Amino acid sequence: MTTVAHDTGVGPLLRSWRERRRISQLELALRADSSARHISFIETGRSRPSEEMVLRLAERLDVPVRERNALLVVAGYAPRYTETALDDPAMGALREGMDRLLRGYDPYPAFVVDGLYTVVAANQGMARLLDGVSEHLLVPPLNAMRLTLHPEGMAPRIRNLREWRADLLAQMERQIALVRSAELRELYEEVAGYPVASEHGGDQEWAGPSASVPFALPLLVEHDGRLLSFVASIATFNTPMDVTVAELAIETLLPADQATAAYLRSLSS
């Protein structure tokens, strides 16, 4: 996933990140143990920040790891964070840990995606939900957004598709604003353009049990004549030092009612 820089020089880029975080020069200076005057000089190009200062400001501004490398390069320094392919032998322990976690979560659905929503690992619980998805969407590399929103994917079976689609697209919009990725923007435009049939997305009444979840927006999926209700959660790695690891997200679907939980357990047994 490439990064598209819209400004030249590390100063304007840092100013863009500060403005995106909606904090003042003074507040950033306090966070970074500096002065507002020095921050101003850096942003206007009157002062060249040290490598340590670039990293300190990036940390205080919660800049993604990939973008920190970009800031360092623009400032004239070497990238600090590696980008190791997930199939590299050095990632063996990480892959094993993720596989163990996914197996432990079964029979409930769980999967791992990268920064472009490519599915890099999934458990049997997730595979069961993909019953009926068109074969061309199941050809690797699988993409979670396509699998969910494509008219030949899960979309026809999602009973609150309009709400769920809006939530997923908003999530992508937030990520695009953060990383400015051309590939992510292209994916967004593709999935946002998928048609939403009038009989889906909550327009059709469902005669099954109540799917009301007061604490979060549920994902309501029809499976083999049953209505399954899930609440999604996302976990990331703490303080990653590698770009690949920083962009991985472990997504789990927690049963939102006892009927869903019991049904999934019956399938696994």
Rank of each mutant, 00 (worst) to 15 (best):
L178H: 00
I23S: 00
V63F: 04
L228W: 04
L184P: 09
A122L: 14
S134F: 10
S212T: 09
D88Y: 03
A192P: 00
G104A: 07
Q25R: 15
L94S: 11
H150L: 03
A262G: 06
L138C: 04
G11D: 06
S181I: 01
R226H: 15
W17E: 11
L116H: 13
L30C: 06
D257K: 12
G201M: 09
T239Y: 02
A166G: 06
R165L: 10
H223F: 12
A110W: 03
P89L: 10
V120Y: 07
L55T: 10
D62L: 14
S34P: 07
Y105D: 02
A177V: 07
V63H: 02
S40T: 04
A182V: 12
P240N: 03
L217T: 15
E251Q: 10
Y194M: 01
P240L: 13
L57P: 07
T252V: 15
E186N: 06
G201V: 08
Q258D: 15
S134Y: 09
G11E: 05
R265G: 13
L169A: 09
V196A: 14
E186F: 04
P64W: 09
E19D: 08
L101Y: 12
V196N: 08
E27V: 03
L264I: 05
H136T: 15
S212K: 08
L28G: 12
H136M: 05
E67S: 12
T236A: 09
P156F: 00
A249Y: 02
V119A: 01
L169E: 09
A249F: 06
V231N: 05
Q258I: 12
A58C: 09
V73I: 14
P255I: 00
Y188H: 14
R165W: 10
V113Q: 10
I39A: 06
L220M: 13
L267V: 07
P151F: 06
A85Y: 05
I158T: 10
F41G: 05
A110T: 08
R66I: 07
I23P: 00
Q124D: 15
A216S: 14
F111V: 12
T3W: 00
V245K: 02
A127N: 04
P107I: 05
E59T: 13
P255F: 01
I234K: 15
L86D: 08
Y108V: 00
V10A: 08
N160I: 02
L72N: 09
T236N: 04
N160R: 06
V191P: 02
